[in-house]
Design a protein around this nucleic acid. Structure first.
Length: 776
DNA sequence: GGGTTGCATGTCCGA
DNA sequence: CGGACATGCAACCCC
């Protein structure tokens, strides 16, 4: 290599061999700079150092920063503005963020600068560059610049294309004026960071998803001037993602449309056909680099080209799949916040500077528009991105934890599309409009190959497509008659009945009601929700079976609501989830509830019972902790008395007294556990089984003790009567006081409904003791 | 008192 | 081991 001089005319330092790459030359190639000048160029201060006295300096309309507009060196550092003047790339991009958020500002329309203008006309005209090899590097570079590379730092930009040139064999790159989406992407982002060829030489952006061999992707990224810049090598090797993250966090004005790049087999798949735009098939990394993609595979959108095309046609827009996410219980809960994967948020959504974020416009599969606040929280020196206000949408779409939401972008870039896919375990709960397409795809994130091979059945957008077919309210239609639930119907009940209509929905749906507080979690982490479809089958059970597992809440009488000939029990509290052995069984043995046994007269009694229950709650609250300790004893006594009283009652009884015995475990044989929690139903009043005999025996013992205690306490502390009166007050209207030989403060019967009264007796009872130990 | 919001923390996973 | 993420929780707000 001969001696050359630095192309900085103010430098002209001679050097041998070691040159830094400078700006791209009009004549092709790159300026050679000495180390010092090269560094200045890389740091974007070349003109500041060497061209200070030259003409052409203008200031950014926004930040007033001086930019050497008349110099090829700084051509990438600014943009011309529609209304005159220039804007530095930082401000321009910041303004574009506002545009993304629907806040147009004075940087709204940006034209290309001189350098790019040169190629803009090609772009508008549908420039097509094909078969670009090493020899056509400049052409490629220009093409890329037409797409807009101006936001790249100078050295990096050129370096990138240098790198591309060394690797590319074929590029099929066609920009169309109608491809606004892509241009938008290009505008927001900035770089064709790497381009390689497809092994099958197919035009790449529409490479079929089943084609696992594709290796072409496109990485669109951006950077701020002040960012730590990824090297071309890093980009090519797919190490950019982390940098992109940092870039975004530093500058917050980047808009990298960047899937995590594999470290090998580079990855840019670029094709925009006339009227057809799609971004890279992020969900399908080359098999040989599977697992190396920096965008976690679970976030890859899984949509087939067929579906994408159809979707685009149905929406009359071009849809760009971005990413997807399995809803966590938190996401699907009432809190209304959907945590976004950081990488996805930073790659596909507008960068945000402020924690408040920006509103984003979403369109769901039914064409409804939603606005979610895209924001972040500081988190461990990082960020946690969330979409806020998703609850209405989640509920409208009846999404639950475990379902997958898919994020796409409409080509215009101003709106996002929210698709979804049901969790595999809930596919058969979908109505007709979706069931056929609810693919049962495992939400296991690594099941890519399998997903891509079953094109017709494994679509992230199946629901979307199907819903678009004309059924505007596919879900509501499917359950219309079951959605006529009164407002007072608790969510869990509504859900349950909806699911009942949904053809024996699985428990997974049952327990994934939107109400977070009422969700029976399978696991506390999303990971635990990633149940393989075959595993989820184990959780399946019919509605009847599920119903069998749902017991009315203890101590709570239901409201009976009749809607459209359907009788619903309305509870103030969620059901108890348990096995049938603890359900309130009808005499027939089938699971039933109080309401099913209630006659018209009993409904009135139910109301009274509820009132009494409320009073009881109030009294309970005022009672001391000491009294609470006695509750188990009294409840047990009540149970025992009920057992006696049952002998006097021929009519079946509803759910009544129960007790909490949290210390008891499966297999516990204590008197509480051997009897159904409701203390009734399982045994006839005349039953002489061990449990009943024990119960009766103990009840007598307890009553005697209580009587004794009461007489003592009455003599010692008359104020105890107050408590007793309160108990009586609750039951003053009772028509029948069954057994006056029993303590009057223990039990009252309310038209066949038994009601526990307030604890009043002293004494301690170990609920864990064995019932046979009489001398307890 | 219930709902909302912002942050903290624990867990898990990938490098 | 560090980052990402799910979720808990306290402070705050509103009815």
């Amino acid at each position: 290599m001969g001696v050359e001089v630095c192309m900085n005319k103010l430098c002209k330092e001679s050097s041998i061999g070691e040159w830094k790459k400078g700006w791209s030359l009009i004549s092709g190639g790159f300026a050679k700079l000495c180390n010092k000048c090269g560094l200045a160029y890389e740091n974007s201060v070349f003109c500041d150092q060497f061209h200070r006295l030259e003409a052409g300096w203008r200031e950014c309309n926004n930040c007033k920063k001086l930019i050497h507009c008349g110099c090829i060196v700084s051509k990438s550092l600014f943009e011309y503005l529609d209304f005159g003047g220039i804007g530095c790339v930082t401000c321009v991009k910041a303004s574009q963020l506002c545009l993304d958020a629907g806040n147009a500002n004075r940087f709204a329309h940006i034209t290309k600068n001189n350098a790019n203008d040169r190629y803009a006309e090609h772009t508008d005209g549908g420039l097509s560059v094909e078969r670009v090899g090493k020899g056509n590097l400049m052409q490629l570079r220009k093409t890329a610049e037409a797409g807009e590379t101006s936001f790249w730092p100078q050295a990096q930009r050129d370096g990138v294309f240098s790198s591309i040139g060394s690797k590319s064999e074929e590029i099929n790159c066609r920009f169309n004026k109608t491809d606004t989406g892509f241009l938008n992407v290009m505008k927001h982002s900035s770089h064709l960071s790497a381009l390689t060829t497809s092994e099958n030489n197919r035009p790449t952006w529409e490479t079929k998803s089943r084609d696992e061999s594709l290796s072409l992707k496109i990485s669109l990224g951006t950077s701020s001037r002040n960012c730590v810049l990824p090297s071309a090598k890093e980009i090519v090797e797919g190490k950019l993602e982390g940098k992109a993250s940092s870039i975004s966090q530093q500058g917050h004005n980047s808009y990298p449309i960047l899937a995590k790049q594999p470290k090998t087999g580079v990855t840019l798949n670029l094709e925009t056909n006339k009227g057809m735009i799609s971004l890279p098939r992020i969900g399908r990394p080359p098999a040989d680099v599977k697992g190396k993609n920096q965008l976690l595979s679970r976030y890859w959108p899984r949509i087939t080209d067929q579906e994408l095309e159809k979707l685009s046609g149905d929406l009359k827009s071009k849809i760009v799949p971005l990413f997807e996410k399995v809803l966590s219980p938190s996401d699907a809960g009432r809190i209304g916040r959907l945590v976004l994967p950081k990488a996805c948020a930073e790659a596909f959504l507008p960068p945000i500077d402020q924690s408040e974020g920006v509103p984003l416009l979403f369109q769901d599969i039914k064409g409804n528009e939603w606005t979610f606040q895209f924001r972040f929280w500081p988190n461990n020196n990082s960020r946690m991105y969330v979409l806020e206000g998703v609850t209405p949408c989640i509920q409208f779409l009846r999404l639950n934890a475990g379902d997958t939401v898919t994020f796409s972008r409409i080509d215009s870039g101003e709106k996002f599309v929210l698709g979804f896919r049901r969790a595999s375990g809930s596919t058969d709960t979908q109505d007709d409009s979706t069931s056929a397409h609810s693919n049962g795809i495992s939400t296991k994130d690594t099941n890519v190959s399998g997903a891509t091979k079953n094109l017709n059945s494994l679509s992230s957008f199946s629901d979307l497509l199907q819903s678009m077919k004309g059924n505007r309210e596919p879900y509501l239609n499917g359950h219309s008659k079951h959605l006529h639930l009164g407002n007072g119907t608790p969510d869990w009940l509504k859900t349950a009945h909806c699911e009942e209509a949904a053809n024996n929905g699985p428990l997974q749906q049952q327990v994934s009601v939107s109400d977070k507080k009422k969700t029976c979690k399978i696991g506390t982490k999303t990971k635990r929700l990633h149940i393989r479809s075959e595993d989820s089958l184990e959780l399946r059970l019919t509605w009847e079976e599920a119903q069998d597992l749902l017991c009315p809440p203890p101590n709570v009488k239901p409201n009976i609501v009749q809607i459209d000939d359907q009788v619903f029990e309305e509870y103030d509290e969620p059901p108890v989830f348990g096995k049938g052995t603890i359900t309130n069984a009808c005499p027939s043995g089938s699971p039933c509830s109080a309401s099913e046994q209630l006659g018209p007269n009993e409904q009135e009694n139910l109301q009274r019972t509820r009132k009494a229950s409320k009073k009881r709650k109030i009294v309970e609250k005022s009672n001391s902790i000491e009294e609470d300790k006695l509750q188990d004893l009294d409840t047990l006594a009540s149970m025992a008395i009920l057992g006696d009283n049952l002998a006097d009652l021929d009519e079946p009884t509803s759910a009544g007294i129960t007790t909490k015995h949290p210390r008891h475990r499966d297999g516990c044989t204590c008197i509480v556990c051997i009897q159904s929690p409701s203390g009734q139903g399982k045994h006839k009043p005349t039953c002489t089984c061990l449990a009943c005999e024990t119960l009766k025996r103990r009840s007598k013992t307890l009553m005697m003790r209580k009587k004794k205690n009461q007489s003592e306490s009455e003599a010692a502390a008359p104020q105890n009567d107050q408590t007793n009166h309160s108990g009586e007050a609750d039951t003053s209207g009772d028509a029948s006081r069954q057994d006056t030989s029993n303590s009057t403060d223990e039990v009252s019967l309310n038209g066949g409904q038994k009601e526990a009264v307030e604890p009043s007796a002293a004494g301690q009872l170990d609920l864990n003791c064995h019932p046979d130990h009489e001398d307890m």
